[in-house]
């Protein structure tokens, strides 16, 4: 474990909405430079929270449905889900510490 799981519109329900653990969804696309480099930060967090939080990434280029549903108009966008509900959403590259604090608040 440690690497975020690649999900799509079809697997979204199962992987995010019905998940038992809190889920972090990283909305990204290959054309988005900042998205590429959010990867290494999320990899580190996925490692740290392994077994406690699921980390996933969704390519908005081929999965416009989920992006549209959650009103994603700018990437990278990271949405934090708990019990199938979006609890918090951050837009743009963010400090690792801020992401960590959001995750800790979901686990509290």
């Amino acid at each position: 474990m440690g690497k975020p799981l690649e999900i799509n519109d079809d697997s979204f329900e199962q992987a995010v909405i019905k998940a038992e653990l809190p889920v972090v969804v990283d909305f990204w696309a290959p054309w988005c430079g900042p998205c590429r480099m959010v990867g290494p930060v999320l990899d580190e967090l996925a490692e740290k929270y392994s077994g406690k939080v699921e980390f996933t990434k969704l390519n908005v280029d081929s999965n416009a449905g989920s992006a549209g549903k959650y009103g994603v108009h700018s990437i990278p966008t990271i949405i934090f889900f708990k019990d199938g509900k979006p609890m918090q959403q951050v837009v743009g590259a963010r400090p690792k510490k801020e992401l960590q604090e959001i995750i800790d608040s979901l686990l509290a």
């Binding site: 696309a29 054309w31 988005c32 430079g33 900042p34 998205c35 908005v60 280029d61 009103g71 994603v72 108009h73 700018s74 990437i75 990278p76 966008t77 959403q89 837009v91 743009g92």
Partner: peptide, 16 residues
């Protein structure tokens, strides 16, 4: 409106 129309990265968001 950041992420809802305001953007600082055309490469990232033009597609929307």
């Amino acid at each position: 409106f950041i992420g809802k129309g305001v953007s600082y990265c055309a490469t990232c968001d033009a597609n929307f």
